[in-house]
Design a protein around this nucleic acid. Structure first.
Length: 414
RNA sequence: GGGGGAGUACCCAAGUGGCCAAAGGGGGCAGACUGUAAAUCUGUUGUCUACGACUUCGGUGGUUCAAAUCCACUCUCCCCCA
C-alpha cells in the first residue's frame, strides 16, 4: 500500500468511502492500529462467479492485508444451503451441495486476484466444516437460547419479508452466521467481521453472541454497497451482473462498463475499486463534463487490470480506443467463423445477428435493422434481406455492429 | 384445520366471452442530440419462412362458432381465525 501510514488503515478505509456502519468506531480503530489482526468476511457461493459487489469487499480485505492484517475469507457452503433472506423479497432458489461446492471452487480461484494466501497471510475456511454436522437440539440449546425472536423480527433486513412471508429455513440464517462468527472467534481469535451493509444485523447478532458466550468484545463493520449517485445498485449490465469471470462477462464488456460510467460516479468508483492514491484522485475532483473522459479511461483500466491483469486491460483499452475512433482493429472481440460452404450458399444478415449473439432472435434482429441500428464495418445496413457471400470477405473479416457499442467480427474459415 | 384472496409478457399492473399478441408504467433495445456520460425527444419491446401465420395470460381437462376471460380438477403464494 503506497498511501497508508502505519496505524491508519481505518482512516484509509474511511477516506476512500468504504465504511457504512461500525459497531464501535474507537474500538475498531484501536484494534486495527495493531498488526496481524484476524478478521473475516463471509461469501456464500450461490453463483458460479463473484461479481463487483464481492469485489468491493475484497478490496477492503486487500487494504487491510497490505496494512499487515490477516483476512479470512469464509466460504459459506453451509450457509448457502439455507440462503440469506436479508434484503430479499423472495425465497432464494435452493441449491444442491454439489452446485455450492462447485461455486465455492470458483470463488476460491477468484479470491486470489486480490488476496495473497501464501504463508497464511490470508486464510480461506469453509463453514460447512462446522455447520453441516451440527446436532439440532444441541444447537438450539446452546445457541438458539440467546436469540430473541422479537428482536430478530424487528431487524431491518427482514422487514421486506414480513410482507411477503419468511420461511423458518431462512429465518435460521442469522443464527448460522452468528455461530460462524463465534466459531471463528474460538478457532482463530477473530474479533472483527466485515460484510456488505445488508449484513449489518447478521454481523451484530454474531458479535452479541460472542459477547454472551465468551465475554469478549467483538466488532461489526459494514461496507457500503456499490451504488450510483442516485442510490441504485451498480454492476448491472445488459446481460446481468458484472461478473469477474471473463467467461460470464467478457473483459471488453467489463472494461466498457467502467468506461461508460455516469459522470457523477467516477470519483467514487476510483476510490472504491482501484488503488489509485487519494492524492491523485483528489486532483480530478474538480473536473467536469468531457474532461472526465480520460479519468473514466483510467478508472476502467485500473479495475480491469486488477481483475483481469494488465495485459488484458491494455488490450481492452486499445480495442476500445480503436473502435470508437473508427472501424478499428478487430483483435480480441468476439467472433463468428463462417465456413466456405455456407459462404458459397450465402448467409443471411439476420441469421448472423442472431448467431453472433448481437440479437436474441431473428425478430429482434429485424427490428434492429429497421431502426438503423445495424452496421457492417462503418455502413448502416437497411436491407434486412441482405445475404453475405465469399465475395463480401475479400478483405478478410468484416465487423458487424449492433448499435454503437456492440461489436462482433465475422471471419471466413481458412 | 376453518374462512377469504391472488397467480397476466423482463418487472409492476390493466383486462372478467369476440374489437387481445393483450392498456399503462418501469426496465431493455435502437435512433436524434452528445463526450463511448447524463438529461431530453422519437421509435420499438412473443416467435416465424412476416402487410400474413403460429404460440402465449400458474398447470391439466372441459363448455363454446369463439376463452386471459365461463366450469372442473390441480399447483403455488398471501391474508384472517385456530
Amino acid at each position: 500500500m503506497h498511501d497508508s501510514r502505519a496505524g491508519s488503515v481505518y482512516d484509509t478505509l474511511l477516506e476512500r468511502g468504504y465504511i457504512a456502519q461500525v459497531s464501535d468506531e474507537d474500538g475498531v480503530r484501536e484494534l486495527l492500529a495493531g498488526t496481524g489482526v484476524r478478521f473475516y468476511i463471509g461469501f456464500d457461493p450461490t453463483a458460479d462467479s463473484l461479481h463487483v459487489g464481492h469485489f468491493i469487499q475484497m478490496m477492503v480485505m486487500a487494504h487491510l492485508q497490505r496494512a499487515g492484517h490477516v483476512p479470512i475469507a469464509l466460504m459459506g457452503c453451509g450457509t448457502a444451503m439455507v440462503g440469506d433472506p436479508s434484503g430479499r423479497t423472495d425465497l432464494r432458489q435452493m441449491l444442491t451441495l454439489e452446485t455450492i461446492t462447485h461455486n465455492a471452487e470458483r470463488f476460491r480461484e477468484q479470491m486470489r486476484i486480490l488476496l495473497d494466501f501464501t504463508d497464511d497471510r490470508a486464510l480461506m475456511v469453509n463453514n460447512a466444516d462446522w455447520l453441516l454436522d451440527l446436532n439440532y437440539v444441541d444447537f438450539l440449546r446452546d445457541i438458539g437460547v440467546h436469540f430473541s425472536v422479537n428482536r430478530m423480527l424487528a431487524a431491518e433486513a427482514y422487514r421486506q419479508r414480513m410482507e411477503k412471508g419468511l420461511t423458518f429455513l431462512e429465518f435460521n440464517y442469522m443464527l448460522m452466521q452468528a455461530y460462524d462468527f463465534l466459531e471463528l472467534h474460538r478457532r482463530y481469535g477473530v474479533r472483527l467481521q466485515l460484510g456488505g451493509d445488508d449484513q449489518w444485523s447478521n454481523i451484530l447478532a454474531g458479535a452479541d453472541l460472542i459477547r454472551r458466550k465468551e465475554q469478549t468484545e467483538a466488532y461489526a463493520l459494514t461496507i457500503k454497497l456499490l451504488t450510483t449517485s442516485e442510490g441504485i445498485k451498480m454492476g448491472k449490465t445488459a446481460r446481468g451482473a458484472l461478473w469477474l469471470d471473463p467467461e460470464k462477462c467478457p473483459v471488453f464488456d467489463f472494461y466498457q462498463y467502467w468506461r461508460n460510467i455516469d459522470d457523477a460516479d467516477v470519483i467514487n468508483s476510483l476510490r472504491l475499486v482501484t488503488f489509485v492514491p487519494m492524492e491523485e484522485i483528489r486532483g480530478w475532483e474538480h473536473l467536469t463534463g468531457s474532461q472526465l473522459n480520460p479519468v473514466k479511461e483510467r478508472l476502467a483500466w485500473e479495475v480491469t487490470a486488477i481483475v483481469h491483469g494488465r495485459e488484458a486491460a491494455d488490450s481492452a483499452r486499445q480495442q476500445a480506443r480503436a473502435l470508437f475512433a473508427g472501424p478499428g482493429e478487430a483483435s480480441d472481440m468476439p467472433e463468428t467463423l463462417l465456413s466456405a460452404a455456407e459462404l458459397e450458399a450465402g448467409v443471411g444478415l439476420l441469421e448472423l445477428l442472431e448467431r453472433s449473439g448481437l440479437s436474441p432472435s431473428r425478430s429482434a434482429a429485424r427490428r434492429l435493422v429497421r431502426q438503423g441500428g445495424v452496421r457492417l464495418d462503418d455502413e448502416v445496413v437497411h436491407d434486412e434481406a441482405l445475404v453475405l457471400t465469399a465475395a463480401d470477405f475479400a478483405d478478410g473479416h468484416r465487423i458487424l455492429r449492433a448499435g454503437k457499442k456492440r461489436f462482433h467480427r465475422l471471419r471466413p474459415t481458412d
